[in-house]
Protein backbone atom coordinates (compact mmCIF):
# COMPACT_ATOMS: atom_id res chain seq x y z
CA UNK A 1 0.00 0.00 0.00
CA UNK A 2 2.85 2.37 0.78
CA UNK A 3 4.29 1.92 -2.72
CA UNK A 4 0.84 2.54 -4.23
CA UNK A 5 0.47 5.78 -2.31
CA UNK A 6 3.97 6.90 -3.26
CA UNK A 7 3.19 6.19 -6.92
CA UNK A 8 -0.06 8.10 -6.60
CA UNK A 9 1.71 11.18 -5.17
CA UNK A 10 4.26 11.06 -8.02
CA UNK A 11 1.59 10.72 -10.69
CA UNK A 12 -0.53 13.43 -9.10
CA UNK A 13 2.45 15.79 -9.13
CA UNK A 14 3.27 14.91 -12.75
CA UNK A 15 -0.34 15.67 -13.77
CA UNK A 16 -0.49 18.95 -11.86
CA UNK A 17 -2.91 17.53 -9.30
CA UNK A 18 -0.71 17.96 -6.25
CA UNK A 19 -1.49 21.49 -5.07
CA UNK A 20 -0.07 21.16 -1.57
CA UNK A 21 2.59 18.58 -0.67
CA UNK A 22 3.47 18.12 2.98
CA UNK A 23 5.66 16.12 5.30
CA UNK A 24 6.92 16.29 8.85
CA UNK A 25 10.53 16.55 9.88
CA UNK A 26 12.38 16.31 13.18
CA UNK A 27 14.06 19.36 14.63
CA UNK A 28 15.77 20.09 17.96
CA UNK A 29 12.46 21.68 19.01
CA UNK A 30 10.17 18.85 17.98
CA UNK A 31 8.37 17.85 14.84
CA UNK A 32 7.88 20.50 12.14
CA UNK A 33 5.19 20.31 9.50
CA UNK A 34 6.43 21.47 6.08
CA UNK A 35 4.12 22.26 3.18
CA UNK A 36 4.93 23.33 -0.38
CA UNK A 37 3.01 24.26 -3.49
CA UNK A 38 4.47 24.01 -6.99
CA UNK A 39 5.63 27.63 -6.45
CA UNK A 40 7.62 26.87 -3.31
CA UNK A 41 7.59 26.47 0.44
CA UNK A 42 4.31 27.85 1.71
CA UNK A 43 4.20 26.82 5.36
CA UNK A 44 6.42 25.73 8.20
CA UNK A 45 4.47 24.80 11.28
CA UNK A 46 6.20 24.94 14.64
CA UNK A 47 5.79 22.07 17.13
CA UNK A 48 3.30 24.04 19.25
CA UNK A 49 0.64 23.73 16.57
CA UNK A 50 -1.69 20.91 15.61
CA UNK A 51 -0.75 19.60 12.13
CA UNK A 52 -4.32 18.41 11.48
CA UNK A 53 -5.65 21.92 11.89
CA UNK A 54 -2.91 23.37 9.73
CA UNK A 55 -3.69 20.93 6.92
CA UNK A 56 -7.38 21.83 7.11
CA UNK A 57 -6.47 25.48 6.91
CA UNK A 58 -4.25 24.85 3.86
CA UNK A 59 -7.08 22.88 2.25
CA UNK A 60 -9.47 25.78 2.80
CA UNK A 61 -7.09 28.58 1.81
CA UNK A 62 -5.07 27.06 -1.05
CA UNK A 63 -6.63 23.85 -2.36
CA UNK A 64 -8.10 20.68 -0.87
CA UNK A 65 -5.67 18.68 -3.04
CA UNK A 66 -3.33 18.24 -0.08
CA UNK A 67 -1.18 15.09 -0.10
CA UNK A 68 1.59 13.72 2.06
CA UNK A 69 4.55 13.69 -0.32
CA UNK A 70 7.86 13.73 1.59
CA UNK A 71 10.04 13.52 -1.54
CA UNK A 72 8.82 16.93 -2.67
CA UNK A 73 10.22 18.49 0.50
CA UNK A 74 13.59 16.75 0.55
CA UNK A 75 15.53 19.92 -0.24
CA UNK A 76 13.70 21.93 2.44
CA UNK A 77 14.45 19.21 4.98
CA UNK A 78 18.08 19.06 3.94
CA UNK A 79 18.58 22.80 4.38
CA UNK A 80 16.73 22.86 7.71
CA UNK A 81 18.93 20.03 9.04
CA UNK A 82 22.05 21.97 8.04
CA UNK A 83 20.66 25.14 9.62
CA UNK A 84 19.97 23.42 12.94
CA UNK A 85 23.52 22.03 12.81
CA UNK A 86 24.85 25.57 12.42
CA UNK A 87 26.18 24.75 8.96
CA UNK A 88 23.83 26.87 6.88
CA UNK A 89 23.39 30.60 7.27
CA UNK A 90 21.15 31.42 4.34
CA UNK A 91 18.25 29.38 3.01
CA UNK A 92 18.10 29.08 -0.73
CA UNK A 93 14.54 27.92 -1.32
CA UNK A 94 11.70 29.13 -3.54
CA UNK A 95 8.97 30.56 -1.30
CA UNK A 96 5.26 30.86 -1.93
CA UNK A 97 4.06 34.04 -0.19
CA UNK A 98 0.38 33.66 -0.95
CA UNK A 99 -0.69 33.14 2.68
CA UNK A 100 0.36 36.69 3.56
CA UNK A 101 -1.12 39.79 1.99
CA UNK A 102 -0.39 43.51 1.72
CA UNK A 103 1.30 45.07 4.74
CA UNK A 104 1.96 41.70 6.38
CA UNK A 105 3.67 40.40 3.29
CA UNK A 106 5.82 43.52 3.05
CA UNK A 107 6.85 43.07 6.69
CA UNK A 108 7.73 39.41 6.08
CA UNK A 109 9.70 40.25 2.96
CA UNK A 110 11.68 42.80 4.97
CA UNK A 111 12.28 40.16 7.64
CA UNK A 112 13.49 37.76 4.95
CA UNK A 113 16.37 40.16 4.30
CA UNK A 114 17.68 40.30 7.89
CA UNK A 115 21.08 38.57 7.76
CA UNK A 116 21.90 35.50 9.84
CA UNK A 117 23.06 36.33 13.35
CA UNK A 118 21.63 39.87 13.32
CA UNK A 119 18.49 41.30 14.85
CA UNK A 120 16.13 44.15 14.05
CA UNK A 121 13.20 45.78 15.85
CA UNK A 122 9.49 45.62 15.15
CA UNK A 123 9.58 49.39 14.64
CA UNK A 124 12.23 49.04 11.96
CA UNK A 125 10.22 46.35 10.18
CA UNK A 126 7.14 48.59 10.26
CA UNK A 127 9.15 51.40 8.68
CA UNK A 128 10.59 49.14 6.00
CA UNK A 129 7.11 47.87 5.18
CA UNK A 130 6.07 51.47 4.55
CA UNK A 131 4.22 52.48 7.71
CA UNK A 132 6.45 53.43 10.61
CA UNK A 133 3.54 53.94 12.98
CA UNK A 134 2.23 50.41 12.48
CA UNK A 135 4.62 48.82 14.98
CA UNK A 136 1.93 46.70 16.58
CA UNK A 137 0.75 45.53 13.15
CA UNK A 138 4.34 44.58 12.32
CA UNK A 139 4.35 42.46 15.48
CA UNK A 140 1.10 40.83 14.37
CA UNK A 141 2.62 40.14 10.94
CA UNK A 142 5.52 38.36 12.65
CA UNK A 143 3.09 36.35 14.76
CA UNK A 144 1.22 35.33 11.63
CA UNK A 145 4.39 34.36 9.71
CA UNK A 146 3.42 31.21 7.78
CA UNK A 147 7.07 30.29 7.10
CA UNK A 148 8.91 30.74 10.42
CA UNK A 149 12.61 29.78 10.75
CA UNK A 150 13.11 30.11 6.97
CA UNK A 151 11.62 33.63 7.05
CA UNK A 152 13.46 34.54 10.24
CA UNK A 153 10.90 36.35 12.37
CA UNK A 154 12.90 35.18 15.39
CA UNK A 155 15.41 37.90 14.47
CA UNK A 156 12.90 40.65 15.26
CA UNK A 157 12.96 42.02 18.81
CA UNK A 158 11.37 44.85 20.71
CA UNK A 159 13.06 48.21 20.73
CA UNK A 160 15.45 47.94 23.70
CA UNK A 161 16.14 44.27 23.10
CA UNK A 162 13.28 42.44 24.86
CA UNK A 163 12.39 39.23 23.05
CA UNK A 164 8.82 40.15 22.15
CA UNK A 165 6.82 37.09 21.13
CA UNK A 166 7.22 33.85 19.21
CA UNK A 167 4.72 31.32 17.91
CA UNK A 168 6.93 28.42 18.95
CA UNK A 169 7.43 29.87 22.44
CA UNK A 170 10.08 32.28 23.70
CA UNK A 171 12.57 29.54 24.66
CA UNK A 172 12.64 28.50 21.02
CA UNK A 173 13.17 32.08 19.86
CA UNK A 174 16.03 32.46 22.32
CA UNK A 175 17.57 29.12 21.26
CA UNK A 176 17.46 30.11 17.57
CA UNK A 177 19.16 33.42 18.33
CA UNK A 178 21.80 31.61 20.37
CA UNK A 179 22.34 29.11 17.56
CA UNK A 180 23.02 32.08 15.26
CA UNK A 181 25.29 33.73 17.84
CA UNK A 182 23.01 36.75 18.00
CA UNK A 183 22.36 36.87 21.75
CA UNK A 184 25.59 36.57 23.67
CA UNK A 185 25.10 39.68 25.78
CA UNK A 186 22.37 38.38 28.09
CA UNK A 187 19.81 41.04 27.21
Amino acid sequence: MKASLQRLADRAAAEGLLDVAYTTTDSPFGSLLLAATPRGLVRVDLPAYDPGETLEELAARISPRVLEAPARLDEVRRQLDLYFDGKLTEFDLPLDWRLSKDFRRRVLRAIDRIPYGETRTYAEMARRAGNERAVRAAGTACGANPIPIVVPCHRVLRTGGALGGYGGGLPMKEALLELEGARGDGR
Binding site: D50, E53, A59, L67, A144
Partner: peptide, 30 residues
Amino acid sequence: GSGKCGARTSHFRAPGRLIHDLTALPPFQT
Protein backbone atom coordinates in the same frame (compact mmCIF):
# COMPACT_ATOMS: atom_id res chain seq x y z
CA GLY B 1 -9.74 21.43 17.82
CA SER B 2 -7.13 20.97 20.48
CA GLY B 3 -7.36 24.50 21.80
CA LYS B 4 -3.62 25.02 21.34
CA CYS B 5 -3.99 27.44 18.52
CA GLY B 6 -6.18 30.07 20.05
CA ALA B 7 -3.92 32.83 18.79
CA ARG B 8 -4.46 31.89 15.20
CA THR B 9 -7.45 33.06 13.31
CA SER B 10 -9.70 30.50 11.76
CA HIS B 11 -13.01 31.21 10.17
CA PHE B 12 -14.34 27.68 10.23
CA ARG B 13 -13.49 26.13 13.55
CA ALA B 14 -13.22 26.88 17.21
CA PRO B 15 -11.35 24.72 19.68
CA GLY B 16 -13.13 22.02 21.61
CA ARG B 17 -16.48 22.00 19.86
CA LEU B 18 -18.08 19.81 17.22
CA ILE B 19 -18.02 22.42 14.54
CA HIS B 20 -16.65 20.64 11.51
CA ASP B 21 -18.46 21.97 8.51
CA LEU B 22 -19.50 18.98 6.42
CA THR B 23 -19.48 21.09 3.27
CA ALA B 24 -15.79 22.04 3.74
CA LEU B 25 -13.56 19.64 1.87
CA PRO B 26 -10.97 18.02 4.12
CA PRO B 27 -7.35 17.67 2.92
CA PHE B 28 -7.32 14.92 0.30
CA GLN B 29 -4.81 12.98 2.37
CA THR B 30 -7.62 12.36 4.87
